[in-house]
Write a protein that binds this DNA or RNA. Structure first.
Ligand SMILES: [Zn+2]
Ligand SMILES: [Zn+2]
Ligand SMILES: [Zn+2]
Ligand SMILES: [Zn+2]
Lengths: 132, 132
DNA sequence: CTTATAAATGTTATATTATTACATAATGTT
DNA sequence: AACATTATGTAATAATATAACATTTATAAG
């Protein structure tokens, strides 16, 4: 586990929940699960999520409106994210592939424009779902 | 303009609106704009959007919950999409780059898994916003 | 240690996005 | 015509996310 010195109380609570989860968590599911810890309102959850996304501790899976812990220790600020999503069981993994990230970070479009950030979501069937 | 033979009334109305738009449209903005044409309920919009996405006429910009017309005539079924999004003015363009799409369509992860679908969103500043 | 500033919290209300459920109508196929 | 498939209409509700405002806690200077 990494240091969390600068995280606030709510941020720690919510990060811990997300880190422990084996699947992406949705905001209101998080809310439900931290109510016993005193977090009562959606906004408290969304604020913590915003901050955690900003510092790269978690990522938002846009196509699912859900959040997972960063599985890539080097991904301090989440400007370059790639995920594998199983369309059957909804398992999500973060892809850490340096060739891919280099390729995308250096990508220049037809107009010569470069980008400072990207998010890539791959969809398919995971091993389990493919063989069953 | 392409053929629309198989599109239903609502689907045509909504596709036409999206095609004419210079920016991605949100579902409730679409609803507001087609109420004069007799479409009254969110569900009518969402159903048309679902179908149009399914057949590749439009794409959903996941990070914006908005929809744009496919700008790539060869993109019949939208399994491989890439977009450029300006973080300042929110201008969105579809990227049609055969090298990029080949690279991503052939991508195999560490575990040897291949994917049948992907969505990529690049973020940055468009030309206009960079120089102003 | 006090003052200033920024960051985080608590709380209520509300806005925005999307789906469930059920009845009906239009379209395509045999 | 009979059947299956797709689309529509309508009402209600679920799920996701933000606005506004008052207060508290943490950090950084002076
Ligand atoms: Zn990461
Ligand atoms: Zn699976
Ligand atoms: Zn397209
Ligand atoms: Zn711009």
């Amino acid at each position: 586990m990494e240091k969390q010195y600068n995280l606030s109380k709510n941020q720690k609570i919510i990060l811990n929940l997300i880190v422990k989860s084996t699947e992406p968590l949705k905001a209101y599911s998080i809310l439900y699960n931290v109510q016993k810890k005193g977090i009562k309102a959606p906004l408290q959850v969304y604020r913590a999520l915003d901050k955690l996304v900003e510092i790269g501790k978690i990522h938002k899976i846009e196509s699912r409106n859900a959040f997972i812990a960063c599985q890539n220790s080097s991904c301090q600020i989440s400007k370059a994210t790639a995920f594998s999503i199983c369309e059957s069981c909804e398992k999500v993994s973060e892809i850490s592939n340096s060739k891919l990230s280099k390729y995308l970070s250096n990508f220049t479009d037809e107009a010569g424009m470069k980008y400072n950030k990207y998010n890539l979501e791959f969809f398919g069937l995971c091993k389990k779902c493919k063989t069953s």
